[in-house]
Design a protein around this nucleic acid. Structure first.
Lengths: 117, 117
DNA sequence: CTGTATCCACAACGATACTG
DNA sequence: CAGTATCGTTGTGGATACAG
């Protein structure tokens, strides 16, 4: 169960739900990665590297590992030759949709370039 | 206007709304601070220090300064002797409600302690 | 009450190069 | 295609003490 795995993240945080959320997805690229997976379905490593503009291989690799460890995504080897993997959201990852989309919507509403008048 | 001030945060980010959002409120304590102000209205420095469990004076001070600089909160000196200030959300800060509450709700739904059965 | 001043620590990010 | 290996940098946070 997801609840069981996530128990650990609650400890010592005084049960503040905001803090626990930021602890889980508060790293620089996590929300963007999750967003791309939400919008475009399962993606390979290079697909993500293209979608997430500006990220390096190392940081993407690190981030994916962290997200997998926390139970938000799964990694599957789809093909052996050439090697091809697929990163996919778990149910827990999907459940972040409302958070990620809220961030996206806020950004779109407040950060678009000023209209020419 | 808010749009004008926020222009700067868009540049060079390839206009990804998620990235801009995380750039603005992605620091460790920002969402918690904003949440307390959303729920409890204007608060003094020590009120916040109490509400935001575990934060140090320095980090709270730094965070408030950053939030003010970005236009999410205002700081007013309410009383001179003893010194008393009031931190309050701007309209822009209030507009983050949906994001912050989404984080809170997700945290509450997924991180509560397992029920005894 | 509302901070500032130091000083330290370290996770996380970034750049570059290389591998099966 | 999907990473790993280095290695350098730094933003951010944490502890503690002190100040108007």
């Amino acid at each position: 169960m997801a609840d069981q795995r996530l128990e650990v993240w609650c400890a010592g945080k005084d049960w503040c739900p905001i803090t626990t959320t930021t602890t889980l997805i508060g790293r620089k690229w996590h929300p963007v990665i999750l967003h791309r997976l939400l919008e475009n379905g399962p993606l390979g490593f290079n697909d993500l590297k293209t979608e997430v503009d500006g990220i390096s291989s190392k940081v993407l690799s690190d981030s994916l590992e962290d997200l997998e460890e926390k139970g938000f995504i799964t990694r599957h080897v789809v093909n052996d030759k050439p090697v091809r993997v697929s990163y996919e959201l778990t149910d827990l990852g999907e459940s972040l949709e409302v958070v990620i989309f809220a961030m996206r919507d806020w950004g779109m509403e407040h950060l678009k370039p000023p209209e020419p008048t």
